[in-house]
């Protein structure tokens, strides 16, 4: 491998898309003891929950999948309509990847046009960007980054990430034998 990094395709996590005014969202999240972040493109954490501010009147709430039922009851459809906010589960839309290790910044520099330096993308950074020209969510993890792409692009992203490591998938998703893979005779 060219880079000292570990890339993992992560299991499904629970994700909710929240839209509405900050005040309305804030009130809706009280039950979870979660406050919206103060700065755009950053996130806040409370227990198992992470809330990221990803656009005007737009937040994403991340949680372990085990919290799915809890959150669905918190965000009962009727309640959200009454509050004039939109809360929609989008867990299945995302495929998360972890990019972790000493060279995680190198991988991100290859796949994304974002400036991942801590002065530009802080430790609580949480933003949409592009990964291999595909819309993706980016946030920091302890040893690197987590990215989330639309699940339909997951194979494409996985294909690209392996190429970046100099370790292409044995058979790529176009069905052709990968050029640099030494395991293929």
């Amino acid at each position: 491998m060219i880079y000292d990094v570990s890339i993992q395709q992560l299991d499904l996590s629970c994700t909710f898309d929240l839209k509405g005014s900050q005040a309305d969202i804030s009130s809706c999240l009280k039950e979870l003891c979660l406050e919206p972040p103060k700065q755009p493109n950053t996130g806040t954490m409370s227990g198992k929950f992470t809330l990221g501010w990803v656009g005007p009147n737009h937040w994403l709430l991340l949680a372990p999948q085990s919290e799915e039922q809890t959150l669905m009851s918190v965000f009962d459809a009727q309640k959200t309509i009454e509050r004039n906010i939109s809360v929609i589960e989008v867990s299945d839309m995302f495929q998360f990847f972890s990019i972790e290790g000493p060279d995680a910044h190198d991988i991100l520099a290859i796949c994304s046009p974002i400036d991942s330096h801590v002065t530009a993308f802080p430790k609580n950074g949480f933003t949409y960007t592009k990964i291999f020209d595909t819309k993706a969510l980016l946030l920091r993890s302890i040893r690197g980054f987590h990215i989330a792409v639309d699940r339909s692009y997951a194979d494409f992203i996985n294909d690209n990430l392996h190429r970046t490591l100099g370790n292409p998938l044995p058979i790529n998703h176009a069905g052709r034998v990968a050029k640099n893979n030494n395991n293929i005779s």
Binding site: I110, F132, D133, T134, D150, R151, S152, Y153, A154, D155, F156, D159, N160, R163, T164, N172, H173, A174, R176, A178, K179
Partner: peptide, 17 residues
Amino acid sequence: GGREDSAVLPYRHTPIT
């Protein structure tokens, strides 16, 4: 750059691909 072969253009799959 690394864009060659199957990675030249983005592609999307369904869970049933």
